[in-house]
């Protein structure tokens, strides 16, 4: 985990990150930091800020092929850029924040049971603290996503709690 994350930039401005650990070894982050990353991504989207295309190459031991995760769509590029500005992605913590933020957004979009655990209004999103804590610390899978069933198990063990606003 202590090995450095290498970054290379293409002539077109795209960034490639050589990450010396697999997605499953993504370190935990503080829930508050994840909340701040969410708020930063929201602010960047609201300001219409775009970011460069990014490719994360997760190096695996044992001669396995690296896993490539491409951030190509404008939303993911914007959100990653916002995290990078606050916590550089060439550091494990910044990268972990970015990956966990993207995994959380992905989870909210595909796991219907999360619906009661966050609400939206003009002031932003409000999360149940248990959801936030789980997203900040639960392991990512080999494709840098959350295992929805595992995360749900973690959540059910930690209720009830009050809500938190970015």
């Amino acid at each position: 985990m202590s090995a450095a994350i290498g970054v290379a930039e293409s002539p077109e401005g795209a960034l490639a990150y050589a990450i010396p650990f697999p997605p499953e070894a993504t370190p935990p982050v503080r829930p508050q930091a994840l909340l701040e990353a969410w708020a930063a991504a929201r602010a960047a989207a609201g300001a219409g800020r775009y970011g460069p295309a990014r490719r994360f190459l997760f190096l695996r031991g044992g001669g396995e092929e690296p896993l490539a995760l491409d951030l190509a769509d404008p939303d993911a590029r914007c959100w990653a850029e916002a995290v990078d500005a606050a916590s550089p992605l060439d550091r494990a913590q910044g990268l972990a924040l970015c990956l966990r933020l993207l995994a959380l957004i992905d989870l909210l979009g595909r796991a219907s049971w999360t619906r009661g655990l966050f609400v939206l209004d003009r002031e932003g999103a409000e999360f149940h603290p248990a959801l936030l804590a789980a997203a900040a610390t639960a392991p990512l899978d080999a494709t840098a996503r959350f295992d929805a069933a595992l995360l749900r198990e973690r959540l059910t063990a930690s209720l009830p709690a009050r809500t938190t606003r970015p």
């Binding site: 969410w38 929201r42 989207a45 939303d75 909210l108 979009g109 966050f118």
Partner: peptide, 18 residues
């Protein structure tokens, strides 16, 4: 197209899936 608010993007995906 401006980038989407993360919550709006997640909610749209969730509602479409539902």
């Amino acid at each position: 197209r401006p980038p989407a608010d993360p919550a709006e993007a997640a909610l749209l995906a969730a509602c479409r899936a539902e």
